[in-house]
Design a protein around this nucleic acid. Sequence first.
DNA 1: GAACTGCATTTTGTATGCAATATCCAAGAT
DNA 2: ATCTTGGATATTGCATACAAAATGCAGTTC
Lengths: 229, 229
Amino acid sequence: MAPGLLVTSHVPLPEQVYHKVRRAILNGFFAPGQMLRQEEVAARLGVSRSPLREALPRLEAEGMVVLHPRRGYAVTSLDPAEIGELFDLRILLEAELARHAVERRQAHDVARVRAILAEMSDPKLLITGESRQGWFALNNRFHDALLEPGGHRHHLRALENASALIEPYIRMETNLTGDLRQAQQEHSGIADAFAVGDPVRFKCLIREHAENTRTRLLIALPGACSVPR
Amino acid sequence: MAPGLLVTSHVPLPEQVYHKVRRAILNGFFAPGQMLRQEEVAARLGVSRSPLREALPRLEAEGMVVLHPRRGYAVTSLDPAEIGELFDLRILLEAELARHAVERRQAHDVARVRAILAEMSDPKLLITGESRQGWFALNNRFHDALLEPGGHRHHLRALENASALIEPYIRMETNLTGDLRQAQQEHSGIADAFAVGDPVRFKCLIREHAENTRTRLLIALPGACSVPR
DNA sequence: GAACTGCATTTTGTATGCAATATCCAAGAT
DNA sequence: ATCTTGGATATTGCATACAAAATGCAGTTC
């Protein structure tokens, strides 16, 4: 066999830990500003500190946590100005990706978007509570499915990075208002434009979707700011 | 004293290791595709594998290395298409940052740019060899100094990420041709536009600078492809 | 001669142990 | 009463040890 051809697809423990901690931050289980005590987090995940200590630097590189030397890692806490900047970055990258994605999309890409959208409209996912996490998981897959067809891995990585940083706050807002209907409506308009292949309309709707999310968020934020340092 | 106010500024070993490995990749000491055997790298840096194993995930998050599970980390090797994409990303982010930086720049920002430019014109730095590393270090500081004044940390981080990924290849090109004069000339034009505060001209020159670098690189690349896998 | 099998070596993956430092709380001084 | 100081505790930082897996080579078989 040719050297370097690995047969077994093995997911390293540090990577599993990375995903679990990341999800916990995204859904607010670890709140902005909260210190992450390594022994406690590792114990909760049933691993030792070693793999955790390899997962945390990745989260730090993405800006999800910050390291206070000799004090530990804390979940990143963003002020409204930074959240605004991240929305700008998201919009900038989405516009660029949207252009290429519409051009290069194929039939199966459209089908995938429609399938995800159908899953998301399940009323069970729309009620407030734990099921919201399911909706947000689908929401991320929906946005990915719209923008992945154009390729551009590095743009996508930058976008997912920026989006992840603001996601905890977006989830806070939807938990407060409990209203996903506007998002749902905008999604279906976006999916239509994607299916039709109208690049101008698609870009525009994607942009408006982000702008609307930002507006709602920055209005609701002051009330949601329970940021333990 | 208020809790959480750290007096001593302590640079953790994993961070020092991160910077050293990163520099080694940027200047080609670790070539694209090369496997990084942990014991060897750690020994070379005079540390154990622990801090190295916390530095590597950070580099992985930035795309500088890739992890092949149970085989080890390797320096990322980019094909021309990806390099092209990264230039697009760089140009997109630079344009956005340039706008704000010109608007918000202050006298000391202009002075800093001029000072760095002066240092870079030192003939000792322009000769081929080890001193090139000094020139590239200044080059990065120059670009940062131009774009930092606008704030926008997250845009900047994304830009520095994208720039770092293509830097090994840019260095290869300049090592082949040995010619930094075009870059130097473009830099002085850019610095002038920045000093004057002409946003259109500044953005345009910044863009052309990147475009020219890309063109030279993608022409020279086929000859420089000694990519040991 | 080519391909396969099995063992020895190398390298990664994870846990654990110990030292260094920060935090916390109580007791004393100003 | 407030501020300081001391020590006990908790937590991080780093190194080391051990287990698991992949690689490379030799010997064997067809």
